[in-house]
Computed example of a mutant assay.
Amino acid sequence: PWLGHTCGQCRFCRMGRENLCDHPGFTGYTLDGGYADYVVADARYCFALPDRYDDLHVAPLLCAGLIGYRSYALTKNAGKIGLYGFGAAAHIIAQVAVQQGREIYAFTRPGDTEAQAFARQLGAKWAGDSTQQPPVALDAAIIYAPVGALVPTALKAVRKGGQVICAGIHMSDIPSFPYAILWGERSVCSVANLTRRDGEEFLAIAGRMQIHTQVHPYPLEEANRALDDLRHGRFQGAAVLVP
């Protein structure tokens, strides 16, 4: 997975927060691999994959699924969860949440009725665009879209004591907003990387549950087309690059 090494010595590793390691190694970034046919990896950072998936359909679990799960786990016992941006991560986590008895409220870019229908198909209680308020106050909201303007929008949608979790590595600037929508012990936090425990927990869940990954394969040489299709919302689910 993305987290390929941690130092084991820094304060974060000693606290059990290896996702924040001061001297990490990341597969395909600081460690060779990612798109290689073969790669040497530290076995301590490798996961056993559920047998029920083929390579194409298991691929989204290792990126979208893992970071999606860490953000979902931070919602703790939230019963009503909003997902802003219904793409690769959200379509996986929505299925986990619904099968665990939670209610999912899905938010898409304005006018994307196909994504809204897809969310309802996967069990969402409600689906609408990100300019709308949900029909009920949310216990937590996860923002998968890298759009900073969604932070104040999500804060308005969560109840007192609710959480807004920013799941992306990057996000556009968050605009200023009135303190009144943060007051009431609402909170905003980001998610960074994952721990090995996150991966083990999530892949065990994926092996037990009926989770369908909606995949759209692209040849590796068409990676730029895949990114362009992703940006413009031309498919539902996850893009997978195939060598």
Results as ranks from 00 to 15, higher is better:
219 P>N: 08
101 G>S: 11
137 A>I: 05
206 A>S: 10
38 Y>L: 14
216 H>E: 09
121 Q>A: 14
169 I>T: 07
135 P>S: 01
93 I>S: 14
87 G>R: 02
87 G>I: 09
38 Y>E: 11
153 T>I: 10
34 G>Y: 15
191 V>N: 05
26 F>L: 09
94 A>M: 11
44 R>T: 12
2 W>A: 06
53 Y>T: 02
104 I>Q: 02
154 A>T: 08
213 T>I: 10
25 G>N: 11
203 L>D: 03
46 C>F: 07
137 A>T: 10
53 Y>C: 06
232 H>A: 03
185 E>A: 15
23 H>G: 02
78 A>G: 04
156 K>A: 10
82 G>P: 04
5 H>Q: 14
180 A>S: 15
60 P>F: 05
133 Q>M: 10
46 C>Q: 11
89 A>L: 08
185 E>D: 15
168 G>E: 09
145 A>T: 12
7 C>Q: 10
165 I>V: 14
103 E>M: 03
23 H>A: 04
122 L>R: 12
169 I>R: 08
94 A>F: 00
219 P>K: 03
147 V>D: 02
127 A>I: 12
48 A>L: 14
131 T>I: 04
68 G>R: 07
171 M>R: 15
217 P>K: 13
172 S>H: 06
191 V>R: 08
207 G>W: 05
145 A>N: 09
88 A>K: 05
99 Q>P: 05
237 G>L: 00
52 R>A: 05
127 A>Y: 03
162 G>Q: 03
198 D>P: 13
88 A>F: 01
68 G>I: 00
210 Q>Y: 09
124 A>S: 07
107 F>I: 01
87 G>V: 11
57 H>Y: 02
106 A>T: 11
3 L>Y: 06
230 L>H: 06
118 F>W: 08
65 G>Q: 14
174 I>T: 13
208 R>Y: 02
157 A>L: 03
178 P>R: 09
65 G>T: 06
66 L>V: 08
83 L>N: 03
140 A>W: 02
146 P>H: 06
99 Q>G: 04
152 P>D: 04
40 V>E: 00
30 T>Q: 09
216 H>Y: 05
225 R>Q: 15
50 P>T: 12
176 S>D: 01
169 I>C: 00
103 E>A: 07
17 R>S: 11
236 Q>T: 15
8 G>L: 06
155 L>P: 04
147 V>R: 08
117 A>L: 13
195 T>W: 14
55 D>P: 06
73 A>C: 13
122 L>W: 02
29 Y>A: 04
234 R>E: 09
63 C>I: 02
207 G>Q: 06
12 F>L: 05
73 A>K: 15
18 E>V: 05
220 L>K: 00
28 G>T: 02
199 G>W: 00
38 Y>I: 13
64 A>F: 09
106 A>M: 13
161 G>F: 14
164 V>H: 01
185 E>C: 11
26 F>P: 07
232 H>Q: 10
165 I>D: 07
31 L>A: 02
102 R>Y: 00
63 C>Q: 12
164 V>F: 01
100 Q>Y: 01
226 A>K: 09
234 R>K: 11
150 L>V: 14
58 V>Q: 15
151 V>S: 00
138 L>W: 12
135 P>R: 10
229 D>K: 05
201 E>Y: 04
